[in-house]
């Protein structure tokens, strides 16, 4: 099953790279720089997805107490941390090329920074507790507790500070305001990133009785 998934990911990745570099037209006001968005948006999407899935498995661990759920929660957080760093770097490059500065505490940058802090704190907490059951319980509780920040990141922060960030793909009116070719490429890139996340999540996942730090 995993072999087929890996093969599908490989094909899809090649297709996405071809579409991004040879098919997608330059965007109005951004020119060729728009290509960064096809890497940045999927990275940011996986950062949030991994965070929510980590919390989901944390809740499952607290309910059932099987270490497999803790492994999945931890693995998801580790992957999320890598993806959030990639999203931050790609976003900072885009910011430098379009606004003239790598970092200016734009609301979206603040949001992604908080996500980095949460992932960093969660992984630090796990590294600081050697006993597997205690580590699983403590980090699950922290993962769910940090989920309380989500409404704030989505609703409060954007209202506190002015943003230069381009409007999301799905805008405030609920309309998708994007060229069809770009939208198709973006959807393919999002699917590709999601499949990569799933593949890495289940790659050599430890057995129930083993202990993954």
């Amino acid at each position: 099953m995993m072999k087929y998934l890996s093969f599908a990911i490989m094909l899809l990745t090649v297709l996405v790279l071809y579409l991004v570099f040879f098919v997608v037209p330059p965007a109005e006001g951004l020119g060729g720089l728009v290509r960064i968005a096809f890497f940045h948006i999927p990275m940011a999407w996986i950062s949030v997805l991994a965070f929510l899935m980590s919390a989901w498995w944390a809740a499952a661990y607290l309910r059932k107490g099987t270490l497999r759920q803790d492994h999945l929660s931890a693995r998801s957080a580790k992957l999320g941390f890598v993806f959030v760093l990639l999203a931050t770097v790609s976003g900072a490059i885009f910011s430098k090329l379009t606004w003239g500065a790598y970092w200016n505490w734009d609301p979206r940058q603040t949001t992604i920074f908080v996500l980095i802090l949460i992932y960093g704190a969660y992984l630090t907490l796990r590294a600081a507790i050697p006993e597997p059951r205690k580590r699983a319980r403590t980090s699950a509780a922290y993962s769910l507790f940090s989920c309380l920040t989500v409404p704030f990141l989505v609703f409060i922060i954007p209202r506190l500070y002015f943003s230069l960030h381009p409007t999301p793909v799905l805008n405030a009116e609920g309309h998708v305001d994007m060229d069809p070719v770009m939208l198709g490429t973006l959807m393919a890139a999002l699917l590709d990133a999601t499949l990569i996340y799933v593949r890495l999540l289940f790659h050599h996942l430890p057995k129930e009785d083993s202990h993954e730090p």
């Binding site: 908080v114 949460i118 403590t138 922290y142």
Partner: peptide, 29 residues
């Protein structure tokens, strides 16, 4: 968070690391 950090082997600094992301929604406003 103080309860969560009790069993951790790293004491100094861990509490602030765990606190800041959770408290930012209060800190910034």
């Amino acid at each position: 968070i103080a309860a969560l950090a009790t069993g951790a082997h790293v004491k100094s600094g861990l509490f602030s690391v765990l606190m800041l992301p959770v408290i930012l929604p209060i800190f910034l406003p």
